[in-house]
Amino acid sequence: MNNPYVPFKLPIINVTEETDIDYTFRFKSDINPQNGQFLEISIPGVGEAPISISDFGDGYLDMTIRRVGKLTDEVFELKEGDYLFARGPYGNGFNLEDYKGKDLVIVAGGTGLAPVKSIVNYFYEHIEELKSFKLIIGFKSPKDILFNEEIEKWKNKINVILTVDNGDENWKGNTGLITKYIPKINEEDYNQTEVIIVGPPIMMKFASLEFLNNNFPEEKIWVSFERKMSCGIGKCGHCKIDETYVCLEGPVFNYTKAKNLID
């Protein structure tokens, strides 16, 4: 019988510096996860943490990691040829079939872009599977923008709106909170539109309200919870909200469920 707590090695293929505190690590891997799932990554003697899978393909997977503490300090010292340990993938992800043939709107704030990056890349390569695709991305400042080169590439096929809360003297793009750019959807388009919102909790709250205030149906909104998921298999209870284990039923939830998940 396999022990679900025993991790496996993930060799590092390369490391991309996105910002001063956000690096994307590409690992050699045959894992075929669901979009939006996560891994528990670890370094023995240092610690373990849940990290979203930001992209994956034949023989590799990517994780975009922010330097925020003891474990990630050590992860940022790793380089090509090194490895870390991982368990998973875990959780309930996004089902791409829910969005095919629809008008898709993705609203992503800050590092919330990472969990949906694989969805964006999939539909970029299969744009004919959507009626339309609008991607609204917000960051605190220009220096916090992730995936700059890919964002520019996405603009070739996707309606991309990129905004920053606070620009600088060199910033020529949009400024203002991400909610400023959320579209008004006509009632006759409700049934053919799906919305994904991922980012900090306060951002997801007000972005969702922008759609709901336009009478957009709750069941057409999907969110992903960034929450401390320690074991990943519903045993430790760290991620539990009332009777819901986020690591098992989430991190992806329909808004009809998510609206009641309050700490």
Results as ranks from 00 to 15, higher is better:
Leu162Ile: 05
Leu162Thr: 10
Tyr255Trp: 14
Asp62Met: 07
Pro115Arg: 00
Asn121Gly: 12
Ile241Arg: 02
Asp144Gly: 15
Ile53Ser: 05
Tyr99Ala: 11
Glu243Asn: 03
Pro142Tyr: 02
Lys143Glu: 15
Pro44Asp: 13
Gly138Met: 02
Phe133Asp: 02
Gly91Thr: 14
Lys240Phe: 15
Lys240Thr: 03
Gly232Met: 01
Ile127Asp: 11
Asp103Leu: 05
Asp168Trp: 01
Pro201Asp: 05
Gly45Ile: 11
Leu261Phe: 05
Leu177Pro: 03
Ile151Gly: 07
Asp189Pro: 09
Val75Leu: 08
Pro50Ser: 06
Asp55Phe: 13
Asp73Trp: 08
Lys70His: 06
Ala258Val: 01
Leu177Lys: 15
Lys184Trp: 10
Val116Asp: 00
Ala108Gly: 03
Leu261Lys: 10
Pro200Ile: 13
Thr175Cys: 05
Leu130Trp: 05
Leu130His: 13
Val46Glu: 04
Glu188Pro: 10
Glu77Lys: 13
Val120Lys: 02
Thr24His: 12
Gly138Arg: 04
Ile43Asn: 03
Ser132Met: 01
Leu96Met: 06
Pro201Ser: 13
Tyr122Lys: 13
Pro142Lys: 10
Val107Arg: 01
Glu219Leu: 05
Tyr83Phe: 05
Lys157Ile: 10
Phe206Tyr: 11
Lys205Asp: 13
Gly57Gln: 15
Tyr245Leu: 12
Pro142Arg: 10
Gly69Met: 10
Asp144Arg: 13
Phe133Thr: 07
Pro201Ala: 06
Asp58Lys: 14
Asp30Trp: 14
Pro201Thr: 05
Gly109Trp: 00
Gln192Ile: 12
Ile161Trp: 15
Gly59Glu: 07
Asn254Pro: 10
Pro4Asp: 09
Glu187Asp: 14
Asn148Ile: 12
